[in-house]
């Protein structure tokens, strides 16, 4: 299984590259962005965050680079799980659970069904070819530094001591007071989506044409 081994090696290499990239970033850029007085030895929670962030980015890289659409789906699973865990670090408990329910329980299953209904399983190894990695790499190199420099060097007006508190009750109050109209509009949007998806995906039977025999 030389192909599998080389793919595994490539994946490991990419993961190492991403980890090294994040390491360089945290060593070179962060000390400039953060005053020297706030430095401290790493806590366990920080290490867990780094592991989850690496899993998230590795999953996203798998979506972007894998040639097998099923592996892309597994990468998407890793990325979505990681984002849900990152929500926990940001004290967004309700959002983390919503991410699990909606994305992993809904969207990902829908995507897997679409993969299995559309790709011929025999060609699944070449089912996810790309237009060429050069353009993608150029795009990545063009976009990422801008975003990273903005993220690292802009002096955001950071709250000094962000609190970790339960948010579910507050989100419910906000939904039913300040954001009531968008909340109701979203329910109409979901209804329209439901009907629209059924209308688009059903097989059209014209009355003047004879029915196809299976």
């Amino acid at each position: 299984m030389k192909g599998t081994a080389s793919k595994l090696g490539l994946t490991v290499l990419l993961a190492v590259l991403v980890a090294a990239f994040l390491g360089i970033l945290s060593v070179k850029v962060l000390p400039e962005a953060i005053p020297a007085g706030t430095r401290a030895p790493p806590r366990l929670g920080d290490l867990v965050f780094y592991a989850i962030a690496a899993m998230t980015v590795a999953g996203a890289a798998g979506v972007a680079l894998s040639r097998n659409i099923l592996r892309s789906a597994i990468g998407l699973l890793m990325a979505l799980l990681g984002v849900g865990a990152i929500y926990v670090f940001l004290s967004a408990d309700f959002l983390a659970v919503a991410q699990l329910l909606v994305y992993i329980g809904g969207v990902l299953v829908l995507i897997l069904f679409a993969v299995m209904l559309t790709a011929r399983i025999g060609d699944v190894n070449v089912s996810n070819q790309s237009f060429g990695l050069a353009g993608g790499l150029a795009l990545f190199v063009a976009v990422t530094p801008v975003l990273l420099v903005v993220a690292a060097l802009v002096p955001w007006p950071v709250h000094p001591d962000p609190s970790m508190a339960a948010t579910t009750a507050r989100i419910g109050n906000e939904f039913l007071s300040r954001w009531l109209l968008p909340f109701e509009v979203v329910s109409v949007v979901l209804l329209a989506t439901l009907i629209g998806a059924v209308v688009i995906a059903r097989k059209e039977l014209k009355p003047d044409e004879p029915r196809e025999s299976p």
Partner: peptide, 23 residues
């Protein structure tokens, strides 16, 4: 090493966005 700051999360978001754009 520093404790978690806003920048850590912004970096993860930026990488997710860039990889999604490439995809």
């Amino acid at each position: 090493m520093t404790h978690l700051t806003l920048t850590h999360f912004l970096v993860v978001g930026a990488l997710l966005f860039a990889l999604g754009l490439v995809t």
